[in-house]
Design a protein around this nucleic acid. Structure first.
Lengths: 113, 113
DNA sequence: GCCCTATTTTGACGACTGTCAAGATAGAGA
DNA sequence: TCTCTATCTTGACAGTCGTCAAAATAGGGC
């Protein structure tokens, strides 16, 4: 979607968000609004080589495989991670640009003029 | 809560989050996971003087007063905004430290060693 | 082709969420 | 004290979400 460029870089503290920008950003923040998904993201990002396979991620939680798969899908559809199949296993890695855009959106710059 | 210090400053990309840290962070990100709340936060932060009264915020949406009040409560209980009564009106302003801690948590530093 | 493992999809269920109308609370001013 | 306005709380309802079991898909190796 092309509105990604317009919503990615301006801190939301400097100008009021448009409804479209808010829709895009909230979709991503909603994906981060679950403790399991945050830990998945953190596990993937901090894993050796910057990627982790689903089997390793599933083993880190006391949750069923389908549940982990569901959370990975939410993160993937929010553009926060990407999956790549290599042989039998699927490896996930984060999309740094997505995290960076969210980080910048929250940057509390120039709040008091 | 005292775990706020431990969860506030380390990017989640460098070390795996603990369950407690993920719980705290996800609570805040969940509060950001709604377009109305994002726009409220943005309106408050970018408003002249860094604060806005509920009446101004309510006027910016085609939503009932109780609904806006509900969203402000979610943002308030997540520690992202603070309200202060002055006479008849209640003014909200953002809590910069909260936004900063979230921004830092997402900082995609040193993902590839 | 057939089986085995890894991962996703589907379907179901209880819990939570966003919204509104109606009622409650709290100052301001007469 | 009474009334008016601003804001919050309560209760209700439809819609979404997190979870699991069961079934489906996809490679790899025999």
């Amino acid at each position: 979607m092309s509105s990604e460029m317009t919503a990615c870089c301006t801190p939301l503290t400097t100008d009021p968000l448009t409804a479209d920008q808010a829709e895009l950003l909230s979709h991503r923040f909603k994906a981060l609004g679950d403790p399991v998904r945050l830990r998945l993201l953190s596990l993937i990002a901090s894993h050796q080589g910057g990627e982790a396979c689903v089997c390793e991620l599933t083993a880190a939680f006391q949750l069923s495989g389908p549940t982990i798969s569901h959370h990975l899908r939410v993160l993937r559809e929010a553009g926060l991670i990407e999956g790549q199949r290599r042989g039998t296993w699927i490896y996930y890695r984060i999309v740094p640009e997505a995290l960076r855009s969210l980080s910048q959106a929250l940057h509390p710059t120039a709040v008091l003029t």
